[in-house]
C-alpha cells in the first residue's frame, strides 16, 4: 500500500517539475457537467490539449466559494444525477492520464468521515483534495488522513490572508499552495490583479511546495501574466465550465480553450 500511497503527493510534485510550459496548466472541470459522461470526455480532452494536472470539482448544492457559472454547473450536475460514486468514477478514469486533485466542499468530506472519504479518494487514484471552506484551523483531521495515504490536502491563501496566517498555511501546505488571485468568488474577470506578482512572491516565501494561481484567470493573456508574475501553476475554471455549457460538443469546446491557454504558456523558442 505504501508504494501507492506515497505517489499522490509525488505525482503532483513531478507534474509541476516536469511541465514543459512556463507554468503548469491545471484546468478545472465540474464532474457531471453537462453530463457525467461528458465530464469524463472533457477531462480526457483537457489532457490531450496540454493539461499538466486536472482539478475535478465535486458538485455541491451550496458552494460558498463559487460564482454563478460554477454554481449553476453544480446545480445542473446534481440534477443530472452526479452522485459521489459517479464523480469518483470520472476521477478514476482521468487519474491515469494526469495527476488529479478533487475540489470538494467540507460537508461532503466529513459526511462519511475524513478517513473514509480519503480512502475513497485514494481508491479512485486522486492525488489530493482542495476544500475551499476548510481553513487551516479546521483542517488537521483531514490533513492527517491525507498524509496517512500520501494524498495532498491543498490549502488556499487569499489576498486578505495575514502574514502570520500565511506562514502557518504555507507550512501545512501539501502538493501545492492554491493562491487565490483576488478578493471574491470564482469567475472570469477582465484583467488580473496588478498585485499578483507580490502575492505570488509572498506565497512562495511561505512554503516549499509550488505556488499555483487561480480565481479570475480566464484567458491566455491572463495565464501568461500569471507565469510572468512567477506562478508555478495556473488554474482555469469558470472559463472552461462556461465552454462546457455552450455548443453541442462540450469536450471539443473545452479542448479548444485549453489549447489556447497551453499555447499562451509556451516557452519562447
Amino acid at each position: 500500500m505504501s508504494a501507492v500511497t506515497a505517489s499522490g503527493v509525488r505525482r503532483i510534485a513531478d507534474a509541476f517539475a516536469g511541465s514543459d510550459r512556463r507554468a503548469a496548466l491545471m484546468p478545472y472541470l465540474m464532474a457531471g457537467f453537462p453530463t457525467v459522461e461528458d465530464s469524463r470526455r472533457i477531462g480526457e480532452a483537457c489532457v490531450a490539449a496540454g493539461a499538466d494536472l486536472l482539478e475535478l470539482g465535486v458538485p455541491y448544492a451550496d458552494p460558498l466559494a463559487d460564482g454563478p457559472v460554477i454554481h449553476a454547473a453544480a446545480t445542473a450536475a446534481l440534477e443530472g444525477g452526479a452522485t459521489l460514486p459517479a464523480v469518483l468514477d470520472v476521477a478514476r478514469a482521468l487519474a491515469s492520464r494526469a495527476p488529479l486533485v478533487l475540489m470538494c466542499y467540507a460537508n461532503m468530506v466529513f459526511a462519511p468521515g475524513a478517513d473514509a472519504f480519503v480512502e475513497r479518494l485514494a481508491d479512485a487514484g486522486a492525488c489530493g483534495v482542495i476544500v475551499p471552506d476548510l481553513p487551516l484551523e479546521e483542517s488537521a483531521e483531514l490533513r492527517d488522513a491525507c498524509d496517512a495515504r500520501g494524498l495532498a490536502l491543498v490549502p488556499l491563501v487569499a489576498p486578505t490572508t495575514t502574514p502570520q496566517r500565511l506562514a502557518a498555511i504555507g507550512r501545512a501546505a501539501r502538493g501545492f499552495l492554491y493562491t487565490v488571485s483576488l478578493v471574491g468568488t470564482t469567475g472570469e474577470r477582465d484583467s488580473v490583479q496588478e498585485s499578483l506578482a507580490a502575492a505570488i512572491a509572498r506565497a512562495r516565501a511561505s512554503t516549499e511546495v509550488p505556488v499555483a494561481v487561480g480565481f479570475g484567470i480566464s484567458t491566455p493573456e491572463h495565464a501568461r501574466q500569471a507565469a510572468d508574475a512567477g506562478a508555478d501553476g495556473v488554474i482555469v475554471g469558470t472559463r472552461l465550465v462556461r465552454a462546457a455549457g455552450e455548443g453541442d460538443d462540450a469536450a471539443a469546446a473545452v479542448s479548444s480553450v485549453v489549447g489556447e491557454l497551453a499555447a499562451g504558456l509556451a516557452r519562447a523558442r
Binding site: 471552506d133 481553513p135 486578505t160
Partner: peptide, 14 residues
C-alpha cells in the same frame, strides 16, 4: 460551531 468558510473571510472573522 467552528469556522468553515473560505480563507478570504478568515481575517474578517478575526
Amino acid at each position: 460551531g467552528g469556522q468553515f468558510v473560505p480563507e478570504t473571510l478568515m481575517p474578517a472573522l478575526a
